[in-house]
């Protein structure tokens, strides 16, 4: 357990990607950054760029147009990386399930590590999800059992 592994858990930079959500979840994701919730306490920073991200936060169901983009962005994130699917839509397609243009949940395209349920997911739930992802990450890098 080296300093690098410890740091990996303490400094998750997120990138937020919105598929074809109703924007409800997106607003909740951004609410996490406000003084009330202040996720920067956990070293979490919102990045606009996959190359700097560690955690990909996806909202909304994947449609045929965004699938390619989502995949491209995921590929551009350097390892190690985590994916969090936020909201019912991102998990399964939610209310958009079976629409003509919808593929389904994020896991149709990417390996998802954490699902955060809710429509919309509450900021507290999202923070819980991030913490869960970090625990998973710390197991993966060998910091915790």
């Amino acid at each position: 357990m080296g300093i690098i592994q410890v740091s990996q858990v303490k400094s998750p930079w997120i990138m937020h990607f919105c598929n074809s959500s109703c924007n409800g979840c997106d607003i909740e994701v951004l609410a996490c950054l406000t003084p009330l919730y202040d996720v920067e306490r956990f070293g979490l920073v919102n990045m606009g760029n996959p190359k700097h991200a560690d955690v990909l936060v996806v909202t909304g169901p994947v449609n045929y147009r965004t699938a390619r983009v989502l995949k491209n962005l995921y590929d551009q994130i350097p390892d190690p990386k985590m994916v969090i699917a936020v909201g019912a839509c991102a998990a399964t397609g939610g209310v958009f399930h079976n629409c003509y243009n919808i593929l389904g949940g994020v896991d149709k395209v990417l390996p998802v590590d954490v699902y955060v349920p809710g429509c919309a997911a509450r900021p507290e739930a999202i923070i819980d999800g991030v913490v869960l992802a970090l625990q998973k990450l710390s197991k993966a890098v060998g910091v915790a059992k």
Binding site: I3, I4, Q5, V6, S7, Q8, K10, S11, W13, P35, D38, E40, R41, F42, G43, D54, P78, D79, P80
Partner: peptide, 19 residues
């Protein structure tokens, strides 16, 4: 806001090294 820990830049630095 409450803000990150004081040593946060170092965590960021070492994390980046490990990517």
């Amino acid at each position: 806001r409450y803000g990150p820990p004081l040593l946060q830049p170092f965590y960021d630095f070492f994390k980046l090294l490990g990517k």
